[in-house]
Every structure is written in structure tokens, then in C-alpha cells.
Design a protein around this nucleic acid. Structure first.
Length: 262
DNA sequence: GTGATTGTTAGTAA
DNA sequence: ATTACTAACAATCA
């Protein structure tokens, strides 16, 4: 379930659970055809080292140290990083694991195999090679408003364009547009300057709150979309009175309220 | 069986 | 050249 807030929560978990422990081994799991994982040579480079820092850019998580190497993880659609202590059982669908000295383990669970793990020497070089845009919570207002204001694509698709804004996916784009009161299929180029500013502020506030609650949706406000994101639910916006519905925008399912989002 | 899923990307079209 | 849209990827679930 990984967009910017979820990935940031994962980074925090790694920060708390996986630093300053000597790596005994890095290993592949079972049933790993069709998933992008490091080869044996790469795995060997991790042995004997310690991770000392974490980073995140958009939906990409990095775990490493000044002198490298780093591992970078993308969770894909269903990936999750799970620290645990032996002899607790390893999670199902573990595709990659790190064995730390002592009992600590880190499992990369990825049942749908759309995530990946790579070994990289320099996170910054990796980020620029991937052509990722600036992180949604790190970017300047002008860069955001220039891009959205000049985009003829559906505004939902523009918000999710990782090459321009890194970190926003299907759920959080819906949330941002719900709070801004815009139809997900509308065009960014149709927005006036004031609305673009509001959209930027709303994006920052929504994602920041998601980060604050460590992506625990039960701790999001009741009048937000995500905790109510289901067909036929009453629109949670106070006094709106509409009903939530959905349709396809840019190949993804967009949930929205047809009454207050235009 | 049908259609859906919180993501990315190769290929195509404009 | 740039931008926008679609289908495909793999596994699971309703």
C-alpha cells in the first residue's frame, strides 16, 4: 500500500529497527521468477557491513551508509518491508531478506512481484538516472504550479506523474483532489493561479498529515476521502450531501464526489 | 468466470 | 521532440 506517506513510514521503521547492526547475509527468497532482485555478486557486497542511514525519494526507499553500498527498495503495488526477530516465522511471500548478527532479520514481502530491490552506490545518481521529479513534499511551489498549470492531461494523472512529482499515487491523488474540490478528470491547464496555489497547499497538508500518522488511515480525519473511499458512501465533507462514486481516469480508478468536485 | 487492486513501463499516437 | 494514453506485467481477492 505504498505511496509517499506509506514509504516514509517504512523508512522510519528501517531507521528504528535496522541501523548499526552487522549484516551476516543478504539472501533471496522463494518463488522469485519475474521479480527484479540483486544477483549473487551484489548480495555478497553487503556481508559484514552496517547500515547507518536511510533516505527516501518519492516512493523509493534507500538503506545504506556513507561509503555504500546502498540497497534501494520499491514496494510496487503490494510490497512491504518487515523487520522481525528469529525465531519468529518469516512472512509469506518473502523475496529478499537480510540476516543481521543476532536474531534481527529484515524481510521484503512482495506477493504480487511488482516491486524491486537493487544495490546502488549512490542514491542521488540513481534518482537522477530514474528521471524522478522532486519529492512532493520537497518541491518548490513555482515548479509545482508551472507544471500543473501547463498540463493538459487529467489533473489526477499529472499529480501521479513520477517524472515530475515523486510520491503521489492513486489514493493520495484522490484525497488531494477531493479536498481541493476538483474533478480528477479536469485539466490542470484550466486552473487559475489561485486554485493552483490552493492545490499546492492542499497537497502539502494532506501528505504531511499522512506522514504524521505514519499512514495509519484510522488516524486520518473522518471528513477525509481515504477512510471513506467506497462507492455509495455519503460524501464525508461537512454539509456536502453528495455520494461518492468512481470512474476511470488515466487507466486508474478515481473515487470522488460529483457534488462538490468540479 | 469477471473484474478489480495504494505501481511502473514499453509501445503507440497525437 | 514532447506529451498523452493503453495495455501489460503477477498474484490475489471479491
Amino acid at each position: 500500500m505504498p505511496e509517499l506517506p506509506e514509504n516514509e513510514a517504512q523508512r522510519l521503521t528501517l531507521e528504528r529497527e535496522c541501523l548499526h547492526r552487522t549484516i551476516e547475509a543478504a539472501e533471496l527468497g522463494e518463488n522469485i521468477t519475474h521479480i527484479d532482485l540483486p544477483g549473487d555478486n551484489e548480495l555478497g557486497r553487503l556481508k559484514g557491513r552496517q547500515f547507518t542511514e536511510t533516505r527516501r525519494h518519492g516512493k523509493n526507499i534507500f538503506l545504506g551508509s556513507k561509503s555504500g553500498p546502498w540497497i534501494t527498495v520499491h514496494l510496487g503495488m503490494s510490497g512491504w518491508l518487515i523487520p522481525y526477530d528469529a525465531p519468529e516465522p518469516e512472512p509469506d511471500h518473502t523475496k529478499f531478506r537480510i540476516v543481521f548478527e543476532g536474531d534481527r532479520r529484515l524481510a521484503f514481502r512482495c506477493p504480487r512481484k511488482l516491486g524491486h530491490v537493487k544495490i546502488v552506490d549512490d542514491p542521488d545518481a540513481y534518482i537522477s538516472a530514474q528521471d524522478l521529479g522532486p519529492g512532493a513534499l520537497a518541491m518548490d511551489r513555482d515548479v509545482f504550479t508551472d507544471f500543473i498549470g501547463g498540463s493538459k492531461a487529467a489533473i489526477k494523472s499529472a499529480l501521479m506523474d513520477q517524472n515530475r512529482i515523486a510520491g503521489i499515487g492513486n489514493l493520495w491523488s484522490d484525497e488531494i483532489l477531493f479536498q481541493t474540490g476538483r474533478d480528477p478528470a479536469s485539466r490542470g491547464s484550466d486552473l487559475d493561479d489561485q486554485t493552483l496555489d490552493t492545490l499546492f497547499d492542499t497537497m502539502r497538508a494532506a501528505l504531511s498529515k499522512g506522514v504524521d500518522v505514519e499512514a495509519d488511515y484510522s488516524r486520518l480525519p473522518d471528513d477525509w476521502l481515504i477512510p471513506n473511499r467506497k462507492d455509495g458512501e455519503p460524501c464525508p465533507r461537512t454539509g456536502c450531501g453528495g455520494s461518492l462514486t468512481h470512474h476511470k481516469v488515466g487507466g486508474r480508478t478515481a473515487y470522488y464526489c460529483p457534488v462538490h468536485q468540479s
